[in-house]
Design a protein around this nucleic acid. Structure first.
Lengths: 212, 212
DNA sequence: CCTCAATGTGAACAGTGTTTACATTAAAGT
DNA sequence: ACTTTAATGTAAACACTGTTCACATTGAGG
Protein backbone atom coordinates (compact mmCIF):
# COMPACT_ATOMS: atom_id res chain seq x y z
CA UNK A 1 0.00 0.00 0.00
CA UNK A 2 2.94 2.35 0.55
CA UNK A 3 2.27 6.09 0.31
CA UNK A 4 -1.42 6.43 -0.36
CA UNK A 5 -1.84 10.03 0.66
CA UNK A 6 -2.71 12.34 -2.20
CA UNK A 7 -1.75 10.44 -5.28
CA UNK A 8 -1.28 12.32 -8.52
CA UNK A 9 -4.22 10.63 -10.13
CA UNK A 10 -7.28 9.11 -8.54
CA UNK A 11 -6.78 5.75 -10.11
CA UNK A 12 -7.40 2.25 -8.89
CA UNK A 13 -4.08 1.61 -7.28
CA UNK A 14 -3.73 -2.11 -7.83
CA UNK A 15 -0.08 -2.29 -6.84
CA UNK A 16 1.02 -4.72 -9.49
CA UNK A 17 -0.55 -5.65 -12.79
CA UNK A 18 -2.89 -2.81 -13.22
CA UNK A 19 -3.97 -3.91 -16.55
CA UNK A 20 -3.43 -1.64 -19.49
CA UNK A 21 -0.26 0.29 -18.82
CA UNK A 22 0.54 0.29 -22.51
CA UNK A 23 -2.66 2.05 -23.45
CA UNK A 24 -2.67 4.37 -20.46
CA UNK A 25 0.87 5.36 -21.28
CA UNK A 26 -0.18 6.33 -24.77
CA UNK A 27 -3.18 8.27 -23.53
CA UNK A 28 -1.13 10.18 -21.01
CA UNK A 29 1.67 10.83 -23.47
CA UNK A 30 -0.89 12.17 -25.90
CA UNK A 31 -2.10 14.69 -23.36
CA UNK A 32 1.44 15.75 -22.58
CA UNK A 33 2.46 16.41 -26.17
CA UNK A 34 -0.82 18.19 -26.87
CA UNK A 35 -0.44 20.46 -23.87
CA UNK A 36 3.31 20.96 -23.72
CA UNK A 37 4.74 19.91 -27.06
CA UNK A 38 6.79 16.93 -28.17
CA UNK A 39 10.10 18.15 -26.80
CA UNK A 40 8.59 18.53 -23.34
CA UNK A 41 7.42 14.94 -23.32
CA UNK A 42 9.29 12.76 -20.89
CA UNK A 43 8.96 9.07 -20.27
CA UNK A 44 9.32 9.55 -16.54
CA UNK A 45 6.58 12.11 -16.27
CA UNK A 46 4.21 9.95 -18.27
CA UNK A 47 5.05 6.96 -16.10
CA UNK A 48 4.48 8.91 -12.93
CA UNK A 49 1.08 10.15 -14.06
CA UNK A 50 0.05 6.64 -14.99
CA UNK A 51 1.21 5.65 -11.53
CA UNK A 52 3.96 3.33 -12.52
CA UNK A 53 7.74 3.31 -12.24
CA UNK A 54 9.81 4.58 -15.18
CA UNK A 55 11.24 1.17 -15.88
CA UNK A 56 7.77 -0.29 -16.26
CA UNK A 57 7.51 1.47 -19.61
CA UNK A 58 10.15 -0.85 -20.99
CA UNK A 59 7.89 -3.86 -20.49
CA UNK A 60 5.56 -2.38 -23.09
CA UNK A 61 7.72 -0.30 -25.38
CA UNK A 62 11.26 -0.74 -26.56
CA UNK A 63 12.08 2.85 -25.71
CA UNK A 64 10.83 6.41 -25.83
CA UNK A 65 10.96 6.53 -29.59
CA UNK A 66 8.61 3.62 -29.89
CA UNK A 67 6.06 5.47 -27.80
CA UNK A 68 6.38 8.41 -30.16
CA UNK A 69 5.94 6.11 -33.12
CA UNK A 70 2.75 4.75 -31.62
CA UNK A 71 1.58 8.28 -31.00
CA UNK A 72 2.31 9.11 -34.62
CA UNK A 73 0.07 6.24 -35.74
CA UNK A 74 -2.61 7.44 -33.40
CA UNK A 75 -2.28 10.90 -34.88
CA UNK A 76 -2.69 9.53 -38.36
CA UNK A 77 -5.91 7.93 -37.31
CA UNK A 78 -7.03 11.12 -35.62
CA UNK A 79 -6.42 13.04 -38.84
CA UNK A 80 -8.39 10.41 -40.69
CA UNK A 81 -11.35 10.84 -38.36
CA UNK A 82 -11.02 14.60 -38.64
CA UNK A 83 -11.25 14.41 -42.40
CA UNK A 84 -14.12 11.92 -42.36
CA UNK A 85 -16.09 14.24 -40.13
CA UNK A 86 -15.35 17.18 -42.43
CA UNK A 87 -16.54 15.20 -45.44
CA UNK A 88 -19.75 14.23 -43.68
CA UNK A 89 -20.45 17.84 -42.85
CA UNK A 90 -20.19 18.65 -46.55
CA UNK A 91 -22.08 15.66 -47.81
CA UNK A 92 -22.96 15.60 -51.46
CA UNK A 93 -20.49 18.24 -52.53
CA UNK A 94 -18.57 18.12 -55.78
CA UNK A 95 -15.30 16.25 -55.85
CA UNK A 96 -13.48 19.51 -56.36
CA UNK A 97 -15.00 20.77 -53.14
CA UNK A 98 -14.19 17.43 -51.61
CA UNK A 99 -10.52 17.94 -52.32
CA UNK A 100 -10.66 21.32 -50.69
CA UNK A 101 -12.53 19.99 -47.67
CA UNK A 102 -9.87 17.33 -47.17
CA UNK A 103 -7.11 19.90 -47.51
CA UNK A 104 -8.74 22.29 -45.10
CA UNK A 105 -9.21 19.54 -42.54
CA UNK A 106 -5.51 18.74 -42.97
CA UNK A 107 -4.55 22.31 -42.22
CA UNK A 108 -6.94 22.68 -39.31
CA UNK A 109 -5.80 19.43 -37.79
CA UNK A 110 -2.21 20.63 -37.95
CA UNK A 111 -3.18 23.91 -36.32
CA UNK A 112 -5.16 22.22 -33.59
CA UNK A 113 -2.61 19.49 -32.89
CA UNK A 114 0.77 20.82 -34.01
CA UNK A 115 2.62 18.30 -31.88
CA UNK A 116 0.78 15.43 -33.53
CA UNK A 117 1.45 16.89 -36.94
CA UNK A 118 5.11 17.16 -36.09
CA UNK A 119 5.65 13.56 -35.09
CA UNK A 120 3.42 12.23 -37.85
CA UNK A 121 5.66 13.75 -40.48
CA UNK A 122 8.98 13.60 -38.75
CA UNK A 123 11.28 10.90 -40.08
CA UNK A 124 10.68 8.58 -37.14
CA UNK A 125 10.19 5.66 -39.42
CA UNK A 126 6.40 5.83 -39.39
CA UNK A 127 4.94 5.36 -42.83
CA UNK A 128 1.85 7.52 -43.09
CA UNK A 129 0.54 5.13 -45.70
CA UNK A 130 1.47 1.92 -43.90
CA UNK A 131 -1.06 -0.77 -44.87
CA UNK A 132 -1.01 -2.13 -41.33
CA UNK A 133 -2.60 1.11 -40.21
CA UNK A 134 -5.29 0.65 -42.82
CA UNK A 135 -7.07 -1.85 -40.58
CA UNK A 136 -8.38 1.04 -38.56
CA UNK A 137 -9.43 2.91 -41.65
CA UNK A 138 -12.74 2.20 -43.32
CA UNK A 139 -12.17 0.39 -46.59
CA UNK A 140 -8.45 0.45 -45.89
CA UNK A 141 -8.25 4.09 -46.81
CA UNK A 142 -6.31 6.56 -44.73
CA UNK A 143 -5.87 10.26 -45.34
CA UNK A 144 -3.93 9.67 -48.53
CA UNK A 145 -6.36 7.08 -49.82
CA UNK A 146 -9.26 9.47 -49.39
CA UNK A 147 -7.48 12.21 -51.27
CA UNK A 148 -6.54 9.79 -54.01
CA UNK A 149 -10.19 8.82 -54.35
CA UNK A 150 -11.40 12.36 -54.73
CA UNK A 151 -8.62 13.24 -57.13
CA UNK A 152 -9.37 10.16 -59.20
CA UNK A 153 -13.03 11.10 -59.49
CA UNK A 154 -12.15 14.66 -60.34
CA UNK A 155 -9.82 13.57 -63.13
CA UNK A 156 -12.43 11.26 -64.62
CA UNK A 157 -15.14 13.87 -64.38
CA UNK A 158 -12.93 16.31 -66.26
CA UNK A 159 -11.75 13.69 -68.73
CA UNK A 160 -8.13 14.21 -67.83
CA UNK A 161 -5.80 11.34 -68.57
CA UNK A 162 -3.18 11.79 -65.91
CA UNK A 163 -1.86 9.38 -63.33
CA UNK A 164 -4.14 9.86 -60.29
CA UNK A 165 -1.37 8.88 -57.90
CA UNK A 166 0.99 11.50 -59.25
CA UNK A 167 -1.72 14.14 -59.13
CA UNK A 168 -2.71 13.20 -55.59
CA UNK A 169 0.91 13.41 -54.46
CA UNK A 170 1.26 16.83 -56.01
CA UNK A 171 -1.80 18.09 -54.18
CA UNK A 172 -0.62 16.46 -50.99
CA UNK A 173 2.76 18.12 -51.31
CA UNK A 174 1.21 21.51 -51.93
CA UNK A 175 -1.20 21.19 -49.02
CA UNK A 176 1.48 19.80 -46.76
CA UNK A 177 3.91 22.54 -47.69
CA UNK A 178 1.39 25.30 -47.20
CA UNK A 179 0.47 23.80 -43.85
CA UNK A 180 4.11 23.70 -42.73
CA UNK A 181 4.81 27.26 -43.78
CA UNK A 182 1.68 28.52 -42.07
CA UNK A 183 2.46 26.52 -38.96
CA UNK A 184 6.02 27.66 -38.47
CA UNK A 185 5.25 31.25 -39.24
CA UNK A 186 7.23 31.46 -42.47
CA UNK A 187 4.39 33.23 -44.26
CA UNK A 188 3.00 35.24 -41.38
CA UNK A 189 2.51 38.33 -43.53
CA UNK A 190 0.52 36.58 -46.20
CA UNK A 191 -1.67 34.92 -43.59
CA UNK A 192 -2.33 38.32 -42.08
CA UNK A 193 -3.23 39.84 -45.43
CA UNK A 194 -5.71 37.15 -46.36
CA UNK A 195 -5.76 34.04 -44.18
CA UNK A 196 -4.47 30.52 -44.26
CA UNK A 197 -7.73 29.18 -45.61
CA UNK A 198 -7.59 31.42 -48.67
CA UNK A 199 -3.96 30.57 -49.27
CA UNK A 200 -4.87 26.92 -49.23
CA UNK A 201 -7.81 27.38 -51.55
CA UNK A 202 -5.61 29.40 -53.87
CA UNK A 203 -2.92 26.80 -54.25
CA UNK A 204 -5.44 24.04 -54.82
CA UNK A 205 -7.18 26.06 -57.51
CA UNK A 206 -3.83 26.66 -59.16
CA UNK A 207 -2.91 23.01 -59.13
CA UNK A 208 -6.27 21.71 -60.34
CA UNK A 209 -6.17 24.31 -63.05
CA UNK A 210 -2.69 23.13 -63.91
CA UNK A 211 -3.93 19.57 -64.38
CA UNK A 212 -6.06 20.65 -67.33
CA UNK B 1 47.86 23.87 -17.40
CA UNK B 2 45.87 21.06 -15.85
CA UNK B 3 45.54 17.84 -17.85
CA UNK B 4 47.43 18.45 -21.04
CA UNK B 5 47.85 14.87 -22.09
CA UNK B 6 45.87 13.99 -25.21
CA UNK B 7 43.37 16.76 -25.49
CA UNK B 8 40.28 16.24 -27.60
CA UNK B 9 41.27 18.91 -30.07
CA UNK B 10 44.67 20.21 -30.98
CA UNK B 11 43.80 23.80 -30.28
CA UNK B 12 45.72 26.65 -28.82
CA UNK B 13 44.88 26.16 -25.21
CA UNK B 14 44.96 29.72 -23.97
CA UNK B 15 43.42 28.92 -20.62
CA UNK B 16 41.21 31.94 -20.37
CA UNK B 17 39.89 34.27 -23.04
CA UNK B 18 40.56 32.22 -26.05
CA UNK B 19 38.92 34.65 -28.28
CA UNK B 20 36.00 33.53 -30.36
CA UNK B 21 34.13 30.98 -28.29
CA UNK B 22 30.84 32.17 -29.74
CA UNK B 23 31.87 31.44 -33.30
CA UNK B 24 33.71 28.23 -32.49
CA UNK B 25 30.67 27.03 -30.63
CA UNK B 26 28.54 27.56 -33.71
CA UNK B 27 31.05 25.86 -35.97
CA UNK B 28 31.31 22.84 -33.70
CA UNK B 29 27.57 22.66 -33.20
CA UNK B 30 27.15 22.74 -36.95
CA UNK B 31 29.38 19.72 -37.34
CA UNK B 32 27.52 17.86 -34.64
CA UNK B 33 24.07 18.36 -36.10
CA UNK B 34 25.32 17.55 -39.58
CA UNK B 35 26.94 14.33 -38.44
CA UNK B 36 24.55 13.16 -35.74
CA UNK B 37 21.34 15.09 -36.13
CA UNK B 38 19.70 17.86 -34.16
CA UNK B 39 18.40 15.68 -31.34
CA UNK B 40 21.89 14.35 -30.70
CA UNK B 41 23.28 17.83 -30.29
CA UNK B 42 24.31 18.64 -26.74
CA UNK B 43 25.64 21.86 -25.33
CA UNK B 44 28.13 20.02 -23.18
CA UNK B 45 29.62 18.05 -26.01
CA UNK B 46 30.00 21.17 -28.11
CA UNK B 47 31.63 22.98 -25.20
CA UNK B 48 34.03 20.13 -24.56
CA UNK B 49 35.13 19.99 -28.19
CA UNK B 50 35.70 23.72 -28.22
CA UNK B 51 37.75 23.19 -25.09
CA UNK B 52 35.67 25.20 -22.72
CA UNK B 53 33.47 24.46 -19.74
CA UNK B 54 29.72 23.99 -20.26
CA UNK B 55 28.90 27.12 -18.34
CA UNK B 56 31.06 29.22 -20.64
CA UNK B 57 28.39 28.83 -23.32
CA UNK B 58 26.07 30.99 -21.28
CA UNK B 59 28.42 33.96 -21.61
CA UNK B 60 27.69 33.95 -25.34
CA UNK B 61 24.24 32.50 -25.73
CA UNK B 62 21.16 32.72 -23.57
CA UNK B 63 20.64 28.98 -23.77
CA UNK B 64 20.73 25.98 -26.05
CA UNK B 65 17.79 27.20 -28.08
CA UNK B 66 19.58 30.37 -28.96
CA UNK B 67 22.45 28.38 -30.39
CA UNK B 68 19.96 26.47 -32.51
CA UNK B 69 18.41 29.72 -33.67
CA UNK B 70 21.82 30.97 -34.73
CA UNK B 71 22.42 27.71 -36.53
CA UNK B 72 19.09 28.13 -38.30
CA UNK B 73 20.18 31.54 -39.56
CA UNK B 74 23.45 30.06 -40.69
CA UNK B 75 21.52 27.37 -42.51
CA UNK B 76 19.42 29.94 -44.26
CA UNK B 77 22.55 31.58 -45.53
CA UNK B 78 23.97 28.23 -46.56
CA UNK B 79 20.85 27.53 -48.58
CA UNK B 80 21.17 30.94 -50.15
CA UNK B 81 24.74 30.21 -51.21
CA UNK B 82 23.67 26.81 -52.46
CA UNK B 83 21.04 28.38 -54.66
CA UNK B 84 23.33 31.14 -55.89
CA UNK B 85 25.87 28.55 -56.95
CA UNK B 86 23.16 26.56 -58.74
CA UNK B 87 22.03 29.65 -60.60
CA UNK B 88 25.56 30.47 -61.67
CA UNK B 89 26.01 26.98 -63.01
CA UNK B 90 22.93 27.50 -65.18
CA UNK B 91 23.73 31.03 -66.23
CA UNK B 92 21.56 32.58 -68.89
CA UNK B 93 18.72 30.12 -68.59
CA UNK B 94 15.08 31.05 -68.93
CA UNK B 95 13.27 32.22 -65.86
CA UNK B 96 11.15 29.10 -65.95
CA UNK B 97 14.32 27.05 -65.73
CA UNK B 98 15.52 29.42 -63.07
CA UNK B 99 12.55 28.58 -60.90
CA UNK B 100 13.28 24.93 -61.32
CA UNK B 101 16.96 25.37 -60.56
CA UNK B 102 16.09 27.17 -57.34
CA UNK B 103 13.63 24.47 -56.38
CA UNK B 104 16.05 21.68 -57.12
CA UNK B 105 18.75 23.37 -55.05
CA UNK B 106 16.20 23.63 -52.24
CA UNK B 107 15.52 19.91 -52.38
CA UNK B 108 19.16 18.93 -52.69
CA UNK B 109 20.13 21.17 -49.82
CA UNK B 110 17.50 19.51 -47.65
CA UNK B 111 18.77 16.10 -48.64
CA UNK B 112 22.38 17.00 -47.99
CA UNK B 113 21.72 18.81 -44.72
CA UNK B 114 18.50 17.40 -43.29
CA UNK B 115 19.35 18.66 -39.83
CA UNK B 116 19.79 22.18 -41.10
CA UNK B 117 16.56 21.96 -43.01
CA UNK B 118 14.80 20.78 -39.90
CA UNK B 119 15.82 23.63 -37.65
CA UNK B 120 15.42 26.22 -40.38
CA UNK B 121 11.76 25.38 -40.71
CA UNK B 122 10.94 24.33 -37.19
CA UNK B 123 8.95 26.90 -35.26
CA UNK B 124 11.94 28.06 -33.22
CA UNK B 125 11.06 31.67 -33.80
CA UNK B 126 13.47 32.13 -36.68
CA UNK B 127 11.90 34.03 -39.53
CA UNK B 128 13.31 32.67 -42.76
CA UNK B 129 12.60 36.05 -44.32
CA UNK B 130 13.91 38.17 -41.48
CA UNK B 131 15.27 41.42 -42.93
CA UNK B 132 18.11 41.38 -40.41
CA UNK B 133 19.40 38.28 -42.14
CA UNK B 134 19.26 40.10 -45.45
CA UNK B 135 22.50 41.90 -44.64
CA UNK B 136 24.36 38.75 -45.52
CA UNK B 137 22.39 38.33 -48.72
CA UNK B 138 23.37 40.15 -51.87
CA UNK B 139 20.85 42.91 -52.60
CA UNK B 140 18.99 41.96 -49.45
CA UNK B 141 17.56 38.91 -51.13
CA UNK B 142 17.48 35.56 -49.42
CA UNK B 143 16.11 32.29 -50.79
CA UNK B 144 12.58 33.65 -50.90
CA UNK B 145 13.63 36.92 -52.51
CA UNK B 146 15.40 35.09 -55.29
CA UNK B 147 12.38 32.93 -55.98
CA UNK B 148 10.14 35.97 -55.95
CA UNK B 149 12.40 37.62 -58.51
CA UNK B 150 12.28 34.71 -60.90
CA UNK B 151 8.54 34.31 -60.50
CA UNK B 152 8.01 38.00 -61.10
CA UNK B 153 9.98 37.88 -64.32
CA UNK B 154 8.17 34.75 -65.42
CA UNK B 155 4.79 36.36 -64.84
CA UNK B 156 5.74 39.47 -66.81
CA UNK B 157 7.20 37.46 -69.63
CA UNK B 158 3.95 35.51 -69.92
CA UNK B 159 1.81 38.62 -69.46
CA UNK B 160 0.07 37.17 -66.43
CA UNK B 161 -1.49 39.69 -64.09
CA UNK B 162 -1.25 37.85 -60.81
CA UNK B 163 0.23 38.91 -57.51
CA UNK B 164 3.88 37.77 -57.70
CA UNK B 165 4.06 37.33 -53.94
CA UNK B 166 1.09 35.01 -53.88
CA UNK B 167 2.47 33.01 -56.79
CA UNK B 168 5.90 32.77 -55.21
CA UNK B 169 4.40 31.54 -51.96
CA UNK B 170 2.42 28.90 -53.79
CA UNK B 171 5.53 27.61 -55.50
CA UNK B 172 7.45 27.74 -52.26
CA UNK B 173 4.75 25.77 -50.50
CA UNK B 174 4.71 23.14 -53.23
CA UNK B 175 8.48 22.80 -53.29
CA UNK B 176 8.69 22.80 -49.52
CA UNK B 177 5.95 20.20 -49.21
CA UNK B 178 7.46 17.93 -51.80
CA UNK B 179 10.83 18.25 -50.09
CA UNK B 180 9.35 17.33 -46.71
CA UNK B 181 7.48 14.32 -48.07
CA UNK B 182 10.57 13.08 -49.88
CA UNK B 183 12.73 13.68 -46.85
CA UNK B 184 10.61 11.84 -44.32
CA UNK B 185 9.91 8.95 -46.63
CA UNK B 186 6.19 9.58 -47.02
CA UNK B 187 6.39 9.07 -50.77
CA UNK B 188 9.08 6.45 -50.92
CA UNK B 189 7.27 4.46 -53.59
CA UNK B 190 6.84 7.39 -55.95
CA UNK B 191 10.48 8.34 -55.52
CA UNK B 192 11.46 4.79 -56.38
CA UNK B 193 9.27 4.76 -59.48
CA UNK B 194 10.60 7.99 -60.88
CA UNK B 195 12.81 10.07 -58.59
CA UNK B 196 12.52 13.10 -56.41
CA UNK B 197 13.84 15.38 -59.12
CA UNK B 198 11.09 14.39 -61.53
CA UNK B 199 8.45 14.78 -58.85
CA UNK B 200 9.69 18.27 -58.19
CA UNK B 201 9.78 19.19 -61.85
CA UNK B 202 6.28 17.78 -62.23
CA UNK B 203 4.71 19.84 -59.49
CA UNK B 204 6.38 23.02 -60.72
CA UNK B 205 5.14 22.43 -64.23
CA UNK B 206 1.66 21.89 -62.88
CA UNK B 207 1.72 25.08 -60.86
CA UNK B 208 3.19 27.28 -63.57
CA UNK B 209 0.64 25.86 -65.96
CA UNK B 210 -2.03 26.65 -63.40
CA UNK B 211 -0.97 30.28 -63.32
CA UNK B 212 -2.00 30.73 -66.94
C1' DC C 1 49.04 50.60 -11.25
C1' DC C 2 44.33 49.73 -10.30
C1' DT C 3 39.86 48.88 -11.43
C1' DC C 4 36.36 46.69 -13.72
C1' DA C 5 33.75 44.49 -17.06
C1' DA C 6 34.20 40.52 -19.81
C1' DT C 7 34.97 35.94 -19.79
C1' DG C 8 36.19 31.68 -17.91
C1' DT C 9 35.62 27.91 -14.08
C1' DG C 10 33.96 23.95 -10.95
C1' DA C 11 30.38 22.32 -8.33
C1' DA C 12 25.86 21.64 -7.73
C1' DC C 13 20.82 20.82 -8.96
C1' DA C 14 17.17 18.82 -11.01
C1' DG C 15 16.00 16.40 -14.61
C1' DT C 16 16.51 12.82 -18.50
C1' DG C 17 16.54 7.73 -20.97
C1' DT C 18 17.95 3.25 -20.05
C1' DT C 19 19.66 -1.09 -17.80
C1' DT C 20 20.04 -4.18 -14.10
C1' DA C 21 18.93 -7.45 -10.54
C1' DC C 22 15.24 -8.52 -8.04
C1' DA C 23 9.96 -8.87 -6.45
C1' DT C 24 5.28 -9.84 -7.21
C1' DT C 25 1.59 -11.78 -9.34
C1' DA C 26 -1.95 -14.20 -12.21
C1' DA C 27 -2.67 -17.92 -14.69
C1' DA C 28 -1.31 -22.86 -16.61
C1' DG C 29 0.09 -27.54 -15.72
C1' DT C 30 0.39 -31.21 -12.89
C1' DA D 1 -4.52 -27.78 -4.32
C1' DC D 2 0.31 -26.86 -5.34
C1' DT D 3 3.95 -25.62 -8.13
C1' DT D 4 5.98 -23.61 -11.91
C1' DT D 5 6.47 -19.96 -15.08
C1' DA D 6 6.04 -16.02 -17.83
C1' DA D 7 4.40 -11.48 -17.53
C1' DT D 8 4.77 -7.48 -15.25
C1' DG D 9 6.05 -4.60 -11.71
C1' DT D 10 9.99 -2.32 -8.73
C1' DA D 11 14.23 0.37 -6.77
C1' DA D 12 18.69 1.65 -7.58
C1' DA D 13 22.17 2.84 -10.38
C1' DC D 14 24.58 4.87 -14.60
C1' DA D 15 25.72 8.18 -17.65
C1' DC D 16 24.02 11.73 -19.52
C1' DT D 17 21.50 16.44 -20.10
C1' DG D 18 20.58 21.97 -19.54
C1' DT D 19 21.16 25.52 -16.35
C1' DT D 20 22.65 28.36 -12.39
C1' DC D 21 25.76 30.18 -9.06
C1' DA D 22 29.59 31.80 -6.47
C1' DC D 23 34.04 32.46 -7.53
C1' DA D 24 38.62 33.06 -10.50
C1' DT D 25 41.24 35.05 -14.09
C1' DT D 26 42.24 38.23 -17.39
C1' DG D 27 43.03 42.25 -20.72
C1' DA D 28 42.15 46.81 -21.51
C1' DG D 29 41.08 51.84 -20.02
C1' DG D 30 41.23 55.48 -16.63
Amino acid sequence: MKKNGAQKNTQKRQAYHHGDVAQQLLAVSEQIIIKKGVEAFSLREAAEIVGVSPSACYRHYKNKLEILKNLASRGLFKLYEYQIKALKKNDGCSCEEEIFVLALAYLQFAQKYPAYFKIMFAPLGVDSRDPSLALGFVAGKGPYGMLLDSVDRWLKKNSIKKNPGTCAVEIWAAVHGMTCLVLNGSIRDEVRKTNSENLLQGIIKTILSGFH
